[in-house]
Amino acid sequence: MVTRPMVPRAIFVALLFSATAAAQTAPAPVLFVPLPGEGLSEDVAHAVSEAVPQGLASRLSRRELRVATELTEPLLGCPDAPCRGQRLAEAGGTAGVLLTVSPPRGRGPIEMRFEVVDAVTGAPRGEAVEIEVPADAATDSATLGELLAPTFDALAPQLPAPPSRAMLLVAANLDGATVQVDGEPRGETPLPPLELDPGTHTVTVTARGYEPFNRSVELSLEGTRLNVDLEPAAQTAEAMARQDAADAEDFVANAPADQPLRKQWWLWAAVGGGVVLITTIAVVAAVAGGGGGAQRFEIPPIPEGM
C-alpha cells in the first residue's frame, strides 16, 4: 500500500468536472471520483477530466463508468473506508475509482494516486497505483492519456468484471409473497436481486388473499426492477367493504345524543374504566417490581371473527 504523504486536498476543480458528469446519466456501476489537491491549475484539471474517464472506460468492457464529482466533497470528508464505501453505494455504484491529484511543488511533478475500492465496504480491490507526471505534460489530455496508459492497464484487473448475467429486483408491496420465475420458486419477498440469463422471463407473484401477479419481463445486462403491486382479491375486498359498512353503521348508531357532556353515559364509563385500568397497572407494577424481568412480549389472543 502506498503511504506517501499528500498535500491538503480541496474541491478546487470540482466544477470543471461537473460538465462531464452531467452528460453521464445512464446507470453506472463504476464511479470515478476525482479528489483534487489544493492549488491545482485549471489546465491540469481539464486534461485529467478528459484523459482519465476515457482511459478507464476503454478498460471497462460492457460496464458503464460515471464521473461522480458530486462525491468529491463527501469523500474528502470521509474518515474511513466504510464511510466512503457507503457514499459510493448510495450513489448507485458497485465500485469506485478514486484519483488523488496533488499539485506540483515548485517545478516538481504532479502526483497522481489511483485506488479502486468496493462500494459498501470501501475496501481496496488491490494495491493503489501511484504515478508522477511532469507538470507540462499534464496540461494536455492526449499526452496525459498516453502517459497514464500503463496505469490504466495496471488498474484494469481491479475493476469489477463485466456482467454476464442480468439482475432482476422484484420489489413487492407485501412481504412474504411467493415469487416464481419461469415457474420455478425463487423465495418470498423481500428478495435480493435475482441473477438470471438475459432474455424474456415470466414472473409470478402470489400471496393468500391477493390477486396473483403475472408479468413477462425482458431482461438486459443492465438489470431491471419490477414493481409488484398486489391487489386484494375480490373476496378480501368484499370483506373489507363489509367491515367498513359495519363500522360506519356502528358509528352512526352509537353517536352521542345532543346532551351535556356530564350526562353522557360513556363519559362516566370511561372514567370508571380508567380508574380500574390505572389500579390494575399500579398493582401489576407493584407486584412485578417495576416491570423488569420478562424478556419476551406477550400478544393477547385475537378474538375470533365471522
Binding site: T236, M240, P300, I302, P303, G305, M306
Partner: peptide
Amino acid sequence: PDINDGRFE
C-alpha cells in the same frame, strides 16, 4: 388482526 377476525381490546 385479519379483517374477518375481531380486533384486540
